[in-house]
Each structure stands twice: as C-alpha cells, then as structure tokens.
Simulated assay, not measured.
Amino acid sequence: MTTARTLAVPAPAPDAAVKYFGAELGFEVDPDDLVRDLEAGRTDGYAVVETRAPEAFARARIPGAINLPYRDLTPESTAHLDKTLVYVCYCESTQCNAATKGALKLAELGFQVKRLSGGITAWIAAGYPTEGDKAPGIRCAC
C-alpha cells in the first residue's frame, strides 16, 4: 500500500501545529475579519495600509486605508506614524509581495505589522466596499 501524497510528509504533533498556526494568525488577518471590524467601527489600535504605488491606491482601496508605498518607507517618511498602532498591510493579491515588503520595512523601523490575506483582489472578490476612481485593472503596481 502506498502512502497518500497528502500524508507523504507526516502532520506535525499538535503542540507544533498550535505554535505554527498561532504564529501565522499573528502575522495575518483575513478580509472578513477586517471588514467586520471596519463596518462595526472597531478601528482602535490599527491602521490599514496600502503598500502599492499611489496610482494603484487612487484606483481602488479599502475604505479608510492610507497609502505608504513600500519603496518610500524610511525613518523620515514614517516619522508621523503612531508606533502604538498595528499596521495592516495589503497589496494586490497573493501574486504581489508589496504587502510583505511593506510589512518588513515597517517592522524594521520598529512598527507592529500584520498582512491582509489575499490583498485588494480578495477584498473585491468577496464583494467588500472600495474607495477610489475604480478604473479597471487592479494590478500589482508596486
């Protein structure tokens, strides 16, 4: 009998799974949790950050998001930010890594960060509201 491909690498022990998945949830938030918080007005303690270029931010963004292009993140460009907040970074999709690059730069600058799973593409696919000129063609633009 051959082992199923799914089980070719054994699942971790429960304590290892708790550590791994607990850490993963510390690094990411999903669109459903974020939209529920935004709709309920629960925005204390975090800011939503679009890490792509300004033209992508102008096209479509999560309501209330601020634009901090990852390429422009420096001690000087972030001096006005509140270090007591958690910055939830997003970009185009899982095929774009601008959110990861932005979260990394912010963390290197001493900010607490999370990443939005799936980016603006997942947000829009779920039917959640956006702001912007809504020009066609959501793209990486980072």
Results as ranks from 00 to 15, higher is better:
Leu73Ser: 03
Arg42Lys: 10
Arg139Glu: 14
Thr3Trp: 13
Cys89Ala: 10
Gln95Cys: 10
Leu81Asp: 00
Ala53Asn: 13
Ala122Asp: 07
Lys105Tyr: 10
Ala79Lys: 09
Gly132Met: 00
Tyr20Ala: 05
Lys114Ser: 02
Ala107Pro: 07
Asp33Ala: 08
Pro75Arg: 06
Thr130Arg: 05
Pro136Cys: 06
Ala4His: 15
Ala16Gln: 14
Thr130Cys: 01
Cys96Pro: 01
Glu39Tyr: 11
Arg36His: 14
Gly102Lys: 06
Ala135Lys: 13
Val48Ile: 09
Glu50Pro: 02
Arg36Asp: 15
Val49Asn: 02
Arg61Ala: 08
Ala23Val: 10
Gly132Trp: 02
His80Ser: 15
Lys19Tyr: 08
Ala40Glu: 07
Ala107Val: 12
His80Lys: 09
Thr94Met: 13
Tyr87Thr: 04
Leu7Cys: 07
Tyr90Leu: 08
Glu28Tyr: 07
Glu131Val: 04
Ala107Cys: 08
Phe57Ala: 01
Arg42Ser: 04
Asp44Tyr: 01
Lys19Thr: 11
Tyr90Gln: 02
Glu39Leu: 09
Ala17Trp: 15
Asn97Lys: 09
Ala53Gly: 08
Trp123Asn: 01
Glu50Met: 06
Arg36Pro: 03
Val113Asp: 07
Ser93Phe: 05
Leu106Asn: 01
Gly41Ala: 03
Val29Pro: 03
Val88Cys: 00
Arg5Met: 12
Val9Gly: 01
Ala99Leu: 03
Ala23Asn: 09
Arg59Ser: 11
Ser77Pro: 03
Ala125Cys: 03
Ala65Asp: 02
Asp37Asn: 12
Cys96Val: 01
Asp30Phe: 09
Ala79Ile: 07
Gly119Asp: 00
Glu39Asp: 12
Glu24Tyr: 14
Lys114Trp: 12
Asp82Lys: 03
Lys134Asn: 07
Val9Met: 14
Leu106Gly: 02
Thr6Ala: 13
Gly102Ser: 07
Leu106Lys: 08
Ala65Val: 00
Pro31Asp: 11
Cys91Ile: 01
Val18Ile: 11
Ser93Glu: 06
Val48Trp: 05
Cys140Phe: 05
Glu24Val: 11
Phe27Tyr: 15
Met1His: 11
Lys83Leu: 03
Ala11Asp: 14
Asp44Met: 02
Asp32Tyr: 15
Gly41Lys: 05
Ala23Ile: 11
Thr74Asp: 05
Asp44Ser: 06
Thr3Pro: 08
Lys101Gly: 07
His80Thr: 10
Pro14Gly: 05
Val86Arg: 09
Lys101Ala: 10
Lys101Tyr: 14
Ala60Leu: 05
Asp30Ala: 02
Asp32Lys: 13
Ala56Gly: 05
Ala47Pro: 08
Pro14Val: 10
Leu73Val: 05
Ala58Cys: 04
Arg71Ile: 15
Phe21Asp: 02
Asp82Thr: 05
Val86Asp: 10
Thr2Ile: 13
Lys19Gly: 06
Gly132Val: 04
Tyr87Met: 06
Pro14Asp: 09
Asp15Ser: 04
Ala4Phe: 15
Leu38Ile: 14
Pro54Phe: 03
Thr2Pro: 12
Thr78Arg: 02
Thr2Phe: 15
